[in-house]
Structure formats: structure tokens, C-alpha cells
Amino acid sequence: MNTLQAPQSVAWTEAGAARSARWRSESGAPPPRRITVADDRTKADDAYKLACEGTALLWRGDFHNARQLLTALARRIDRRPRKRPPTDPAQAFHLHRAAQSQRARILGMLLVSLEPGYDLALRRAPDVREACLQAYGPEEHTGASPALPQLVSLRELLGVIGAYEWRRNGVAIPALGGDRVHPCYGVFSPVRGEYVDLVAEAPLPSAPGPAFDIGTGTGVLASVLARRGVSRVVATDQDPRALACARENVARLGVADRVEVVAADLFPAGRASLIVCNPPWVPAKPTSPVEYAVYDPGSRMLRGFLGGLAAHLVPGGEGWLIMSDLAEHLGLRSRTELTDAFAAAGLTVLDRLDIRPRHGRSRDADDPLHTARAAEVTSLWRLGAARPADGTRSAPDAP
């Protein structure tokens, strides 16, 4: 989901003259109320003080020096005394998120100006035009007025540059024989491959029919199913960036004749023998577009998937729910709440496949959430429509 809002203007004074620009923030951060110009002479301590007080710094110096200043600001944030973490895991999680938000706010105060055409006019600056075009799309122009520059945080721009490199290079997927998936900006990258391995190894249901991949993102799971021999996969998403990304990837991987990518909020029309969903794993509020792949406020997507699953399965079909139990270890959702949701949706558990995470954060003892991450298990829940007492399937007809 893209949270970029309608264009907002921002004004400041530079060299005695009034200046204005458009404000751009993919996270929806409000434009700064105060802006001062900074350059290679600006001291890190002074910049940190201004940023903490809510004054943004518009960089006019060397690009590499701006990156060094951003690193210096991060060091000063990280040097601040840490309170002893609370013993309650949910409270520790919320405090961690609050600290992350505060860190992002301070680091977001270092700004750069993108001139018309996404030109970054700083000394030793890289050419960011194509990266910005892919992330932001074509520039918007209003009437005959000349295009305004756009102010964006350097931290966000570095994320755009990094995402561009990820898209160019791709992520190797062992379950696809090492072929690469190319994530787009704002679309969750399948760097945590254990959940992909679960989909590659789980036994396919014997019931005939197509497969649905709900919330396809990059299209990686739909492509795995197609490579496993599923003759037709319908992959859905509601984010335009994800839809474009998935279409690009299924074409690259040579499965576009078997994978149809459609815009839908959860389910497409009809029924399937297999319906796969890898919803966001943590019931919390996202603060940026890419976090919608991690945080699911109120477990909306999870409950929507479970609530509609039985009605979209053919007799003998299966739903595969891919979930980490991290939320359980954080005290944000219990196992009983999850299994009760299965029962309330008229579903029964056929089997569960588990896998341990392989990412580095699960072994980082300095991570504030280390205890929960170290205990995390990712599961593929094989779900079927519950049978009534006479043994027949009770799934209602799909609309």
C-alpha cells in the first residue's frame, strides 16, 4: 500500500531569498516547519541539536559528506543511554517501535533537493534519475507553471537507491533453482527464504483446480507453485507497485502463461484447490509502505483470509497459511487466538510444517527483541474446510 499523500509545499529562506519546493515523503511524514541550510562546514553536534529540536537541514554540500553526516547523526542517537528493557515482551516491543520512530524522525531531518527531472545537483552525487523514476513514477506537472524542486530526506533517497540496486541485481531463490526475483521499491523482498522453502516442499492437494496466491507481492510464491507443476495460478494484490512487480517477475521466470496477476483485495472470483497466503506476521500499525508486508493492524488481512477461505475452496482443497509465531513471543497474539480464529472460520488443521529462521537478527544478542526472535518459528498451516458430523464438507458456495 502506498501512503504517499497529495503534494504539499514547503518554504524556507536561503541567501536572503524566499524559496519553495514540493515535499515528498513515502512514509507520510509531515513537511518540516523550519528549514536551515547546511553544508560541508556544518558540525555534526550542531546538526544533531537542530534535528532533535525539529529543524530540518537542507544539504547544499558534497553528497558523500552528507552521507557521513547522516552516519554521525545515527551514532549520536545510538549513544543515548538505554533504559533497562521491560520484562513484559509486548511493552518491550512497543517501546522498541517508539524508539525506531523517534530515530527515523531525527534522521529524516537531513534533506536534499531533487531538481526537475529527479536531478540531484550535489557535488559527487550519483545519477539517481532512473532510481527515482522507478520508485516515484513520472513527475507531476500542474498547468504551465515551471516544475518545482522536491525536498526529500536523504535517508529515504538512499532507500530508493538501494531498492534500485536490489531490483537490478535480484534475489536468488533456491526454490526456483537459483533464479532471481527482482523486488521493486515499496514491495517486500523475499530475502527471508525459509517461508518460500515451505511452499516448495509442502505436499500439493490432490483436488483438481487452480491455485490462488493472496497478497502476491513480488510473485515469488505464485512462481514457485507454477514451477511445481500447478497449471494455473491466480495471484492477487491491491498495491499497484506489487501488481507491476509480480507481472514483471512471472514474465522473467517464464511462468506468465500459468500465472495470472489480478488486482483484488484478498480473493479473486471463484474457487481453487489450493489457496496460499503469507500475510503480515505482526498485528501492529505500519509506518511506511514496505512495512505493510510486516505489520497487519488489527490482523485485518489474516482475519479476512481465514474468513473467506472455506467459501473459495473446492471440495478437498487446502488453504496454506504461512505465519511466524513472532507475535506470540512478543505477547501480541496468542496461539489460542490463532486456532480459535481457524475454528470460527469453519476451518480445520490438516497439518503444520515448521522451519527455523536463518536471518542474522535471530542471532543478534544486542537486538532489543532478541529473546523473541531467537525463539521464532515459521509455520505453514495446511487448512481445510471443517467437516460436519456426517463427514461431508461444509464449505458454502463461493459468491
Rank of each mutant, 00 (worst) to 15 (best):
L350M: 07
A135Q: 07
G137M: 11
Y118F: 14
A200G: 08
D239I: 05
I322H: 04
L122M: 07
W320C: 04
A172C: 03
A99V: 01
A343D: 15
S379I: 00
A163C: 06
W166L: 07
R271I: 00
P357Q: 05
A269W: 01
D257T: 14
F212E: 01
R387G: 03
P283R: 04
D127I: 09
R80V: 02
T336A: 13
A345M: 12
P116V: 03
L157R: 02
P126D: 09
T13Y: 03
P86K: 14
V37T: 15
T87Y: 11
Y136K: 00
A246V: 10
R358P: 00
L306V: 00
L353Y: 07
L4C: 06
L57V: 04
E376D: 09
G316T: 09
G215T: 02
V255T: 05
E130Q: 14
T3D: 08
Y185I: 01
D237T: 05
P126I: 10
P210F: 02
P396Q: 07
A66H: 08
A269Y: 01
L350P: 05
C52K: 11
A375S: 14
P268A: 13
Y48R: 03
V187N: 09
P138E: 09
P85H: 08
D351Q: 00
G229P: 06
F305M: 06
T71G: 09
A372F: 01
G108A: 14
T378A: 09
P149K: 10
S101I: 05
F93D: 02
P31Q: 06
M109E: 15
G316N: 12
V112S: 14
C277H: 03
S223L: 04
T339P: 06
M1H: 06
D45Q: 13
Y118Q: 08
I214L: 13
T36G: 15
A207Y: 09
A200K: 08
D39V: 05
A175H: 04
W12N: 00
N249H: 11
R271A: 04
T216E: 08
G159Q: 10
L383N: 12
V230A: 07
A74F: 12
R232W: 06
A226C: 14
L111W: 07
G319P: 08
L309H: 03
S334I: 02
